[in-house]
């Protein structure tokens, strides 16, 4: 009995390693297909549309509300120290460094990542991928590569929009409702938020999240069991894995960027 469970543990471990290996090989294949989107940029535009434009609404609305909540909460804490003037700094730093990239990545994983997984999984289940292969068209280059680069390009832009809308939301609440001084809000923000340290690092984070989220979504779809049940499981896994990996990678990146 004991050996049985040990053997099962070994099998699970081996299976996980195998999937990890397959995932990385797939990523290499996807990236090597970059020539395809140079030859047919239309494929890339269509995917930026699918991932970026269609996520615009949810990202914008979420950004607005997150910024407004930050304005409220931040005001109450800062007012206790008489430092309401720093509200702009607090809102902008939290958005640009953390919430913008992370929340956007989670939203995109839910909105676009799951759709990508389902789409690829369905293409696999309905033999469309095999069909392409039989037409001597490499489905990785033709189907996965444009989606990957579409996601990687769309993510930082979405995060920038999230942060910008959030700052404006914080401004409305802080300056408009709670009476923080208009000039202090912006000037403190500008003097404390550093372009390279904060904005550029935030964008780098978001680029990494773009890679992670689209890669996981595509791999889960491509590796799914080609049945209705298999695709639905893969879709759930795609969102869960993407969320966990984004949060984990965020910790590592934060430690690297702002650690010293």
């Amino acid at each position: 009995m004991r050996f049985e469970s040990l053997a099962r543990l070994g099998r699970v471990g081996l299976g996980a390693l195998e999937r990890l290996g397959r995932g990385h090989l797939l990523l290499v294949g996807i990236v090597l297909g970059v020539g395809e989107i140079l030859r047919r940029p239309g494929l890339l535009w269509a995917q930026i549309f699918n991932i970026g434009v269609l996520s615009l609404l949810i990202v914008g609305v979420s950004g607005l509300f997150v910024g407004m909540v930050l304005g409220l909460q931040g005001y109450y804490v800062l007012a206790q120290f008489g430092a309401e003037q720093s509200l702009g700094v607090m809102v902008a730093t939290s958005l640009v460094r953390e919430l913008g990239p992370v929340v956007t990545a989670l939203l995109v994983a839910g909105r676009a990542g799951s759709a990508l997984t389902a789409e690829i999984g369905l293409m696999k289940a309905t033999e469309q991928l095999s069909g392409l292969e039989m037409m001597a068209v490499d489905p990785i280059r033709r189907i996965l590569t444009p989606r990957f680069f579409g996601g990687v390009l769309a993510m930082p832009l979405l995060a920038a929009i999230f942060s910008a809308v959030g700052v404006i939301g914080g401004y409305f609440v802080g300056v408009g409702l709670l009476g923080v001084d208009d000039g202090a809000f912006w000037s403190q923000m500008q003097s404390k938020v550093d372009f390279e340290e904060d904005v550029v690092n935030g964008m780098i984070k978001s680029l990494v999240f773009g890679v992670v989220v689209t890669w996981i979504a595509l791999f889960q779809g491509y590796d799914s069991v080609p049945t209705a049940e298999g695709v639905s499981r893969a879709t759930t896994r795609s969102v869960v894995h993407a969320a966990l990996v984004v949060l984990g990678v965020d910790f590592v990146l934060t430690a690297l960027m702002f650690g010293d």
């Binding site: 902008a92 640009v96 920038a160 942060s163 910008a164 700052v167 912006w186 923000m189 500008q190 003097s191 404390k192 938020v193 550093d194 372009f195 904060d198 904005v199």
Partner: peptide, 9 residues
């Protein structure tokens, strides 16, 4: 906006 208005670039 983030570069010019929010941060100090």
């Amino acid at each position: 906006f983030l570069a010019m208005r929010v941060s100090n670039l």
